[in-house]
Design a protein around this nucleic acid. Structure first.
Lengths: 257, 257
DNA sequence: ATTACAATAATGCACATACAATATTTTCTG
DNA sequence: CAGAAAATATTGTATGTGCATTATTGTAAT
């Protein structure tokens, strides 16, 4: 039934499809402009779906789609019956990209070389247990050093939890650095990072060939998946070698997601 | 016409609404699990919308919604006629949250105090022009220092481009720190950050009351909107004071957005 | 065999519609 | 007048439908 034909305007869609933007995208763009420009200030209650549908001469589901995507983007907040409101911009936050030496070094058009300084499998120490949130078991501890051309680039100390990622034990990390191996092995993962500065200890200074007390940029990482912590690492860069570049867009990040 | 009633099963929706998750959310969760677990590897072609609809006993638009959101999340890629495919995980990247002293200090349950060390309006120097990407004009240069309880927390040197954000000139930054004023004044914005370590110069050491040569964590920022660069700042933290915490989720960030 | 064209299958967009959930507003009642 | 109950408006979810777009596949013709 409804064998159809209630033939709607019929050319409406033509208009939209004729190279022009899809209606819901037009709505999104328009609203973004208004919000970003401040015309619709934080807390402003935007028109109801019905009103918008009338304004754009489209159906409510189309409007709903646009608003849903804007909410996803973090620009508005929607509450049943209450309406949709312009959100307060999220806390200042930034996205750091490409924290791994391979990408960084090749971005600088330099040749990367890396070497394994030590590689040990052992029972966990109490320090390991804290870093990997584990009770007992064994870990692989591995120290590597990266060079960019003929300059020492960074020093990485890494622990693998052999309970959660046992195959690390038998991998020859002479070819593939531990960080890259992990990315390939567990592509979808999550982690906590900590970035800080410190003064080089005697041993770190020696490995990095800098003066003891020299400033280092350090990144500490814990990688885990739902089944547990996989890896802990701390990477030290001489201050002269590394800058972390970051970018942000207020609209790109929001706490809800 | 289609005056309706072709009354559908009718209790189907009851089932879904009875506390259970919405169908499209269930699909998303299921698919995420399969992708994250590696069951559906990178490049895997996921079932067609029709097949999924059949599997979940729902309509195609519902499936389409789920797939659209998964695409938005960056987990799959969709191509007309070709199908939907599991995406390669994005490059390693992390989200840094809350880089501002106010949040950081109060998160540590400390009392924040801050002071303006200098405030000058002047014509641009060549250094200013590089930092703010401007040709000429005037800038407001302001140096502030933050304390957490009775410890010096950071030192911030900031430039405002008075061409793009002229009202900064007449603001009394004694009450509101420049960074917070800027957030309120221009809530939706974008920026580039650079994070690095350095050894304290004589003057910075004095302002931060550390030994010259001590390790500092530095964050350099440029903030801009579509109309131009608004502000440049560089913030220096004694190594003992600040760690940047970051978190990532492979699924949270992707280059397309 | 290779190219060109037609058929086909998949996603993309939009519509009209229905009902559920819920916060707000209004009305009613004590 | 205050508080409770009912009405109402608004978003949330899902359905079924139709057509547009486009990549792939298959077929036919050169």
């Amino acid at each position: 039934m409804a064998s159809t034909r209630l033939n709607l305007p019929g050319n409406l869609k033509m208009i939209t499809s004729r190279g022009a933007l899809a209606v819901h995208l037009r709505i999104i763009e328009d609203f973004e402009t208004r919000i970003l420009s401040g015309l619709w200030h934080t807390g402003f209650r935007i028109p109801t779906e019905h009103e918008i549908a009338a304004e754009y001469n489209c159906s409510r589901p189309t409007v709903a789609k646009a608003l849903m995507l804007l909410e996803q983007k973090g620009m508005i907040m929607r509450r049943k019956r209450a309406g949709s409101f312009v959100r307060r911009p999220p806390a200042q936050s930034v996205i750091l990209q490409a924290l791994d030496p391979a990408t960084e070094i090749s971005a600088r058009n330099q040749k990367r070389r890396y070497e394994v300084l030590s590689r040990v499998v052992r029972r966990t120490t109490s320090g390991d247990r804290a870093k990997l949130r584990m009770r007992s078991g064994r870990v692989l501890s591995i120290v590597t050093r990266d060079w960019a051309d003929d300059v020492i680039y960074c020093l990485e100390e890494r622990l693998f939890n052999l309970d959660t990622i046992p195959d690390a034990e038998h991998i020859d990390f002479d070819k593939t650095p531990p960080s890259e191996w992990l990315v390939l092995r567990v592509p979808w993962r999550t982690g906590d990072n900590s970035i800080f500065a410190e003064e080089a200890s005697e041993s770190h200074a020696e490995a990095l060939q800098v003066r003891p007390g020299a400033a280092l940029l350090c990144i500490e990482r814990q990688v885990y998946v739902s089944t547990g912590y996989l890896s802990y690492s701390i990477t030290r860069y001489p201050a002269s070698q590394q800058r972390l570049r970051a970018h942000y867009d207020t609209s790109a990040i929001h706490p809800t997601t």
